[in-house]
Amino acid sequence: MTRIAVIAGKGHLAPAIARALTDPAVYALDGFAPEGLDHKTFRLERLLPFIDDLIDQGITQVIFAGAIRRPRLDPEAFDPRTAQMVPRILMAMQSGDDAALRTVLDIFEENDLSICSVQEICPDMVPDAGILAGTPSAADKRDVQRAAQILAGTGGLDIGQGAVVAQGLCLALETLPGTEAMLHFAALHADMRPNPDGAKGVLYKAPKPGQDRRIDLPTIGPDTVDQAARAGLAGIAWEAGGTILLDRAETMRRAEAAGLFLWAVDAEA
């Protein structure tokens, strides 16, 4: 049986993936260790020796799971082989998160390691189209459509994967601080909705257009529901087949308790 390496980042995704695998080899980039998950660390400055170690263990597949920010690089920590890649790595990091991640994937693949997606390992974590809780109103559906249009327009700028829209107006966009910060910002500006008695607003998440879907898919879970409820939103929607849903049963339970809808939207509909 092929052993899979999990490159774990922060958050709940990496532990969920590790639990779904038999005897995974779990690693984390130094400084971005996942909580509650046994792992070994590695440094980007020694990327090629790390890849050699994976291959020596008979590992042929790798899955990336969890949040990782761009690390600070120590010029003195590079081994000679990885040092030859410094211009390539730095150029990618300056081009944005997508370019940086794509370059890292390329390096793994160039060394005969294939990249698995979450959908391959845990297909139930990437829901197909359908309503999982509550019922979005006609106004909510219009806000979801508007949010999808906004993310389609901003995706090429490599900004984020989420937007909050209420009554056709964008209250917040996800940027580097993440979803929780976006929803907190939306809560602070909820009074900017034109009609106080109108649609409360929605959170919508989707991959960036053209994104490599084997890595860095948007993620929703129980904490997202709590944050959306505090922001006073009507519900959460996301692109079906392109968004990870953590702990589906608990997420649905919290949504129903808070009176929020959960909707995996068919992007082609």
Results as ranks from 00 to 15, higher is better:
I89L: 15
G156R: 13
A269C: 09
A258N: 12
L105C: 14
V86K: 14
I89F: 05
V104T: 15
V62Y: 01
M91E: 14
A67N: 14
R70C: 12
Q61F: 04
P209L: 07
S114Y: 07
M192S: 13
A249M: 09
I63T: 11
V265M: 13
F64A: 10
L203T: 06
M192H: 09
A228V: 06
G242C: 10
A206H: 04
A231K: 09
A20Y: 03
G155M: 07
M1E: 12
G58H: 07
V86D: 07
L47W: 13
L262V: 02
D226L: 06
D106F: 10
A20M: 01
P196S: 08
V26W: 05
S117T: 08
C122G: 00
P222V: 00
M182R: 04
E250F: 05
I7E: 00
P177S: 05
M182D: 06
D128W: 10
R88C: 03
K10G: 05
R43Y: 01
A20W: 04
Q227A: 13
L54D: 00
R230V: 11
G259Q: 05
G235Y: 03
A163E: 11
E256M: 09
I236L: 07
I215Q: 02
F185M: 08
I220S: 00
E256C: 01
D30V: 10
I89E: 03
R248N: 11
A231D: 06
